[in-house]
């Protein structure tokens, strides 16, 4: 019985394809949401998501495996979003649909109250300056660690710590009476 082993290139190519597909499957929705939070327009967010994965795919075989892929992915999307915003000159408000919220085990009154708070919170987040808005969403919505946020935003963890604090202070002020 003779077995012909696949060549190293073949094995590497197959491994790369599987890993890339996993990254796409695990991150495409959150990347779309991140892009939408940055540019506030669904079509632009879809274009950014598509272009981000195309760029990632282009450099996938030559990637630095010691660098976290998710942070790299978000950093590409962020750069594309900044370019898009520069071209457009304005940023739309990120849309929010209170009807999408989980209303299980909630009374109609509680559901209505939650929707009102969320609406107010979205408005307050949208009023934040971009550097503060992006750190609060990366931390509290996407659940990133400080080191990942620093990598994505091209800053350091000290800056992330102070921006998060500043963002939270402003949001607490805006939502006084609701928290």
């Amino acid at each position: 019985m003779t077995a012909i082993q696949p060549s190293p290139i073949q094995e590497l190519s197959a491994k790369n394809d599987v890993e890339f597909n996993n990254v796409f499957r695990d991150n495409h929705l959150r990347l779309f949401h991140y892009s939408l939070q940055l540019v506030g327009d669904r079509e632009d967010a879809l274009d950014i998501t598509q272009e981000t994965f195309l760029r990632l795919h282009r450099h996938w075989a030559r990637r630095d495996e010691s660098r976290p892929v998710v942070a790299w992915l978000y950093a590409i999307a962020r750069n594309l979003a900044i370019d898009q915003l520069r071209k457009r000159g304005t940023r739309n408000e990120t849309e929010e649909d209170p009807n999408l919220a989980d209303t299980a085990n909630r009374s109609p009154e509680q559901t209505a109250a939650d929707a009102a708070v969320r609406k107010r919170l979205w408005a307050a987040i949208n009023e934040l300056p971009t550097p503060l808005r992006e750190v609060i969403l990366l931390k509290d919505w996407h659940g990133m660690r400080y080191a990942e946020i620093a990598e994505i935003t091209g800053t350091n963890t000290t800056t992330v710590t102070s921006r998060l604090y500043e963002a939270r202070q402003r949001l607490r002020k805006q939502l006084r009476g609701y928290l």
């Binding site: 929705l29 939408l36 967010a45 649909d97 989980d102 919170l121 987040i125 939270r168 928290l179």
Partner: peptide, 30 residues
């Protein structure tokens, strides 16, 4: 407690998903 509540609220902010066919188109393009 206020920061904690704020974090929970932000985490639970709902966002619409993109249409499935658009995501499939992106996958095919890749």
């Amino acid at each position: 407690e206020e920061m904690q509540r704020l974090q929970q609220l932000t985490h639970s902010l709902p966002m619409r998903n993109p249409p499935d066919e658009r995501m499939q188109a992106i996958e095919q393009q890749l």
